[in-house]
C-alpha cells in the first residue's frame, strides 16, 4: 500500500522531517505532498541522499513526490 505524507502548508523543515520519518519506516512507495518549490527541492535532496528514486508530479500548483527504492 502506498504511504501518504501530507506536508502541505507546513514550513521548513517539517516536510523533510515527516518524509524522513516515513523513509525510516521502510515501506515503499511513499507519496509526499508539498505545496512549495522549496519543500519540493528539500524533500527531493534528502530522499535522493537516502537512496530513494524520486518522481515529481505537479498537481494544481502543488507537488506530489513519489519515493521508491
Amino acid at each position: 500500500m502506498t504511504k501518504q505524507v501530507d506536508a502541505r502548508g507546513l514550513s521548513c523543515p517539517q516536510p523533510v522531517i515527516l518524509a524522513r520519518k516515513a523513509i525510516g519506516e521502510g515501506s515503499y512507495p511513499i507519496e509526499v505532498w508539498v505545496d512549495t518549490v522549496t519543500s519540493r527541492e528539500n524533500v527531493r535532496r534528502m530522499a535522493e541522499k537516502a537512496g530513494c528514486r524520486v518522481a515529481v508530479e505537479a498537481v494544481e500548483g502543488e507537488f506530489k513526490l513519489t519515493l521508491s527504492r
Binding site: 521548513c12 523543515p13 523533510v16 524522513r20 527541492e41 528539500n42 535532496r45 534528502m46 541522499k49
Partner: peptide, 19 residues
C-alpha cells in the same frame, strides 16, 4: 537558493545535511 544561516546549522544538527 534558499540561503539561510539558521537552516545551515539546523540541518547539520538535525540530519547531518551539509548543503
Amino acid at each position: 537558493t534558499r540561503f539561510c544561516t539558521m537552516g545551515a546549522v539546523r540541518d547539520v544538527i538535525l540530519m547531518r545535511d551539509y548543503h
